[in-house]
Design a protein around this nucleic acid. Structure first.
Lengths: 261, 261
DNA sequence: AAAATAGTGTCTATTAGACATTATTGG
DNA sequence: CCAATAATGTCTAATAGACACTATTTT
């Protein structure tokens, strides 16, 4: 490998000064004009073989009438994580559920009113708690089905469907945000304990498999799925069995935090 | 994390109104008090078996005298990605290199002057271009070796060392930011074509292996590494050989974008 | 008994790691 | 020839997928 850096170029311009000036110019500008910082949270659950999320109908422009993720503006006395928790609590009536920062969206014209940077989060909750929280939802919000039109971790936008399977128009870049959340979930599912976040305290191996299949968007081999999960060290048998099924009841398992990787 | 807005009484208040009020309060606050949005870029290269990065000595408080990642404030007319490119260009004299958004840091007191949200990026560049860019660096900046005190994808902060191996004090949360960059790189290395970003246009399989070992922090099996890389479809043999080595020259390969996953 | 799912055992294909062997260059 | 690394071939261990079979519950 030949690497011969041509050390002595002819004339070096005074780079330090140029840099300083550029920096100061930018710094001053930022002092007088700061963007708004918003937080948007994709609350995701899995039920009946589909991912679902809570969306709110926008009452005002921009994106008036379109469906947006629950969100809000960052207050000066709260961290980003705290703001996401607050949004989750205020807009979705959910507390203490899995919450992870996703990506920060900052296209110049993503909100035509003013410059808005949005820090996207996603939250995972099991179907029962999601249903319960959504019971008291306002009539401007809706549970939408997340349709993922791409396979694997290809990525891209998703579509939101109402209960009749009709496509819902999405606000801002929130279809992209949700797509990124799905992509992230698919990527982490095999090595991080996030599938459990979509289930209750105890669950059967088949229920866990269904959740994985819903997130991944494809069927899983039953035998090797069982083996992988049981060998992962993340599951603990409770010794209890299902009691409300009309066939042989399966054993219930519990998620246990593993000590180390 | 429990933040009940305790608006009115213990009896369930009208939820819509409470929500609206809370939202409007937050919105109004944000109109009058907005955080500054900064961009910090970890420029990373691999050479001599170690990861290296460019850091700048802070001339002013806060973190005066400590070493910070190149950064700047977001301007109103540029996207986050554009701002990161600009910082890369202005502070590191690098253009058109791999750049990826990492994470957004928003602890309330991370900058004692004022509320600052920082969107962290990392950039990857091969050793030759890094060296060349760093030739013209200002005397308040430095190439530091990144020491990763944890294994695998455990994560955590890293340490920055000068050429004598002495630990450098780091500014703000930048040691955490760099740690996250390393963790991200380790996680993506096996399935995303990012190792190539640390190499020149052509490279031998051994050079590629060294880069992977440097990023991962552990040795790779030579045989299976070759097989994996050659089967990945990401490499194309150039037919050319090394010409400045004192042993059998290895074939040079080139990175090719794969059509689909 | 029939239906339905739970759970186990085994075979095979694939892949990674280990190791040996041959090939090719410069000194 | 020797030293050094490139490149290939083969054996083994681990793992995922496929399939068959047995087990247990309700109707």
């Amino acid at each position: 490998v030949t690497k011969r850096p041509s050390k002595k170029t002819a004339v070096e311009p005074p780079k330090v000064d140029a840099d300083e000036l550029a920096f100061l110019a930018t710094y001053d500008a930022s002092v007088y004009a700061r963007p708004s910082v918003a937080i948007d949270v994709a609350v995701i659950t899995a039920s009946d073989g589909a991912l679902r999320t809570l969306v709110v109908k926008r009452a005002e422009h921009p994106s008036k009438g379109r469906w947006a993720l629950p969100g809000g503006f960052l207050a000066m006395d709260e961290s980003l994580d705290q703001a996401a928790s607050r949004v989750l609590s205020q807009k979705a009536r959910l507390e203490n559920i899995y919450l992870e920062q996703l990506y920060t969206f900052g296209a110049v014209a993503r909100d035509p009113r003013t410059r808005v940077i949005s820090v996207g989060y996603f939250a995972l909750v099991n179907a029962a708690r999601f249903e319960q929280a959504v019971q008291s939802k306002q009539n401007d919000s809706l549970v939408a089905t997340v349709f993922v039109p791409w396979e694997g971790e290809l990525g891209g936008i998703v579509e939101l469907l109402d209960q009749q399977g009709k496509k819902l128009p999405t606000a801002f870049d929130h279809a992209e945000m949700l797509g990124l959340a799905v992509k992230r979930m698919r990527g982490k599912l095999d090595y991080a304990p996030i599938g459990f976040q979509l289930l209750g305290d105890t669950f059967t191996l088949l229920e866990l498999q269904k959740v994985h299949e819903t997130v991944l968007g494809r069927a899983q081999n039953k035998d090797s799925f069982r083996r992988r999960m049981l060998n992962s060290g993340l599951l603990e048998a409770t010794g209890k069995l299902q009691d409300d099924v009309e066939h042989r009841p399966a054993e219930l398992y519990r998620f246990v935090r593993r000590s180390a990787v």
